[in-house]
Design a protein around this nucleic acid. Structure first.
Lengths: 237, 237
DNA sequence: CAGACATATTGTATGAAATACATTTAGATT
DNA sequence: AATCTAAATGTATTTCATACAATATGTCTG
């Protein structure tokens, strides 16, 4: 190995931010508009950024999310790095990078993180005027995405499914502070791609000491109101 | 984000190569000798390399292993990237990098891969005269390691434990082509940090269609010889 | 206010899988 | 022939996952 043969790519961090609206799993995407000669081309991208000097990967992910939402203490988990030389070969992406970075990019190795946030907590505070929106995960396949972000989202989803298996406390990062068993079940079933039996699900929840019933029911529903529960992290292990 | 504020670290790939000698889990480490003024300092490092121009991360890992062992078709799985600015701050590591790379290194983001190989297949063909050896995983904690390689090994171990849960076929990457139930059990128990019941283990193996008995027993043992088995990948799913 | 409607809540029976546990067998050694 | 070492094997118990439907509680409508 000599000095000439080694190679410096850029290193970036991209975040797959998941949310849950009570019905469906959502992912946070940023609008991207590219002027191509006369045409305006629109697609979406993951929130991400080149890492800064002296910035750890985890810190970069924390920074990206904070810049995006204003929130701190978001659940984050690194899942995979993507470094194919092909991933930055799309002319549209090259054009966008040149305009945004003012720099000719040869290659970007990106580190993928998954983030979980309560969907109602998202605060729109992007410094530039780009728009950020939640998209149904199922729609994503039909949406035009930058770079290999579709692949990144897919891998991120697999990762968070795996993490949810091992850390059941993570479900509650996605649910509102007070939630119904039914919401928890919909989330669980969506994540695991199953249709669980409602009675068996109640039984299972009853065995989770960290899901505690409140003396409260949901409001403004046109039928019998469901009891509300909260997550008690202290009782998790 | 402007051109001045962005930052190019090096990107490398490090491989945590696991082997199993029938008794214990082993990891492949490369001797590293550093001349410090008068003293010769010795420690170990993971096999790894800066990625080449136009080389995908997976391809870099494949190349590293091929250069190290001459083998192809080795099981490989990416598990985590490490990018702390602190990881290349040890003066000893800086010295070694300058001597080896002939270049002042500021920072290296490394992508960790786990590899599994049959321990008897390792072929020593390193171009330089560095020595490569297997080390007991339990000894590793007592061994001086370069950079943050101890942390990388630890994370790699957790990763491969997880992978073994989901892909039982991976056990057979570590075992000889013909193996006994006892070897499989020792490996299984080592990986899962349990002591399984021998009768229940036999039962479990009997339910694995992909573990097929041979008309052969082990040789040169001072007691009743155990039956040999082989792995039949075609019967895996 | 009675009936219709929507979702919430609850228990039992069955089968599958994991666990606990000890004796006999086969070959090598003396 | 006796001893040693590890291999091979079966049953009973418990735990966990699954299948399955009726009743309760509140809202809404005419």
């Amino acid at each position: 190995m000599n000095a000439e043969s080694i190679y410096y790519p850029f290193v970036s961090v991209d975040c797959v931010v998941f949310g849950f609206d009570g019905e469906r799993l959502k992912v946070l995407l940023i609008e991207r508009n590219i002027k191509e000669s006369d045409e305006l081309y629109n697609d979406k991208k993951l929130p991400g950024s080149i890492i800064l000097k002296d910035e750890d990967l985890d810190d970069a992910a924390i920074r990206i999310l904070n810049e995006l939402t204003g929130l701190k203490n978001i659940y984050l988990s690194q899942f995979h790095s993507f470094g194919s030389p092909e991933r930055t070969k799309n002319p549209r992406d090259i054009l966008w990078l040149e305009k945004t970075m003012k720099l000719k990019i040869e290659r970007i190795v990106t580190v993928g993180y998954v983030a979980l946030i309560k969907i109602n907590r998202k605060i729109q505070v992007l410094s530039d005027n780009t728009e950020t929106n939640w998209y149904d995960l199922k729609e994503v396949k039909k949406t035009r995405l930058a770079f290999d972000h579709e692949e990144i989202i897919q891998k991120g989803l697999e990762h968070i499914r795996y993490k949810l298996d091992r850390e059941p406390g993570l479900f509650f990062e996605l649910l509102p502070r007070k939630f119904t068993i039914s919401q928890l079940r919909t989330l669980h079933d969506t994540m695991h791609q199953v249709r669980s039996d409602i009675r068996n699900f109640h039984k299972k929840v009853a065995q989770m000491p960290y899901v505690v019933a409140l003396d409260e029911v949901e409001k403004n529903v046109p039928h019998r109101a469901a009891r509300l529960y909260k997550f008690d992290r202290k009782k998790l292990w």
